[in-house]
């Protein structure tokens, strides 16, 4: 893969030119609403971009799979598809979130390709960036670390004096024209490697078991009802752990009329398997229903199974990428996968 270098002093000009050419989305802070926490949003000036961010509140999957996405518009004359991707650059994605993209790419492509996601994905140039600040609850340094990120078009690593920019596709190379990039020296390339390797040791939380060991033991723990009850005792079934998860992709589909009450839209919205009604079906009769995961403990277990074992074979590794967002989002402090893994392994 070709490696390039851009000086710190030229980086701002590069961003300015890039932003002028097409929409750029990257990690930013909204002082009014998100305080000192980061979100991925449209970057309108070079100064706004914060490549020193630790982790975003909502994962960048929202760029391809927004929290609410219109699927169809219907009206008196029929129905119309609403796939309308925007050519854009998503800049500053950490490698663990790229790993999540790799999973979603596979899952949304599986059997029935879902272009509501895939078209957005294809229209976006994804530029990853090195982790400059490690978030408090991250454990990507240990868990699933053998699975490498693949789905990015370029990778920016901050080194002494500037950035090493590695390109992995034509989309990644197309960005070169926006800045004063030169060839990276061998020293610069190895400095970038050292930087990225070093980040792996900086996570405060660590998983000491292999994903394979965890997968086997988790699956075998399915019927350990006491354990799941104990782990989920304080669970609110609030779904926060799902909503902030970069690899969760469940959704609900609903129809809604417009104010004219004649036309309307069919849309999907992020759903959470922890919430009570997720697996509920109507059966008829006197308003009867069956809830296939009625107890909170069953739903808590389902998430653990999904992240640690069910999808491993299909994805070539665990469905959890170790970002720690669920740990931060969980009010009763029970969603931390490291804690859950340790409890499962204890038996």
């Amino acid at each position: 893969m070709p490696a390039h270098f851009i000086h710190e002093t030229d980086f701002r000009e590069f961003l300015k030119s890039l932003i002028a050419s097409k929409p750029v989305i990257g990690p930013v802070v909204e002082p009014k609403s998100t305080g000192d926490k980061f979100i991925f949003d449209d970057v309108t000036s070079a100064e706004q971009l914060r490549l020193d961010y630790d982790v975003s509140l909502v994962p960048p999957k929202a760029v391809f799979f927004p929290p609410v996405q219109k699927l169809l518009e219907f009206g008196p004359n029929g129905v119309k598809s609403c796939i309308n991707p925007r050519e854009q650059v998503l800049l500053g994605v950490h490698f663990y979130d790229v790993k999540a993209f790799d999973q979603l790419d596979k899952l949304f492509n599986d059997k029935f390709p879902d272009n509501n996601y895939l078209a957005n994905r294809r229209a976006t140039t994804v530029i990853a960036s090195s982790v400059q600040t490690v978030s408090k609850h991250a454990f990507w340094g240990s868990f699933g670390k053998d699975v490498k990120a693949k789905g990015h078009d370029g990778f920016l690593t901050k080194v002494q004096g500037g950035y090493v920019y590695e390109t992995f596709s034509q989309k990644g190379e197309a960005l070169l024209k926006h800045g004063k990039f030169g060839n990276a020296s061998t020293d610069q390339v190895s400095a970038a490697k050292r930087e990225n390797d070093a980040a792996m040791d900086k996570c405060q939380e660590k998983v000491t078991f292999t994903p394979a060991e965890i997968s086997t033991k988790t699956r075998a723990s399915f019927s350990n009802n006491e354990m799941w009850k104990e782990l989920s005792k304080d669970c609110f079934s609030c779904g926060s752990c799902n909503i902030v998860c970069p690899t969760c992709y469940c959704f609900d589909v609903q129809d809604k009329w417009g104010l004219d009450q004649v036309s309307g839209e069919r849309y999907r919205t992020w759903d959470a398997c922890l919430t009570e009604d997720f697996a509920k079906v109507s059966l008829g009769g006197a308003g009867g229903h069956e809830n296939f995961r009625e107890a909170g403990a069953q739903r808590f277990r389902h998430r653990a199974m999904r992240k640690l074992t069910y999808l491993n074979e299909k994805l070539g590794g665990p469905a959890c990428i170790g970002c720690g967002r669920c740990t931060s989002a969980c009010v009763p402090n029970i969603a931390n996968p490291v804690k859950i893994i340790n409890r499962i392994m204890k038996g």
Binding site: F74, G75, V79, K80, S81, A119
Partner: peptide
Amino acid sequence: MSNCGNGCSCNDSAIDNVFLPREA
């Protein structure tokens, strides 16, 4: 199927939409 009658902005592109139903 080219017009939903809403005067909306969505584009009726050639990209397959797995959620698009057929009329029966």
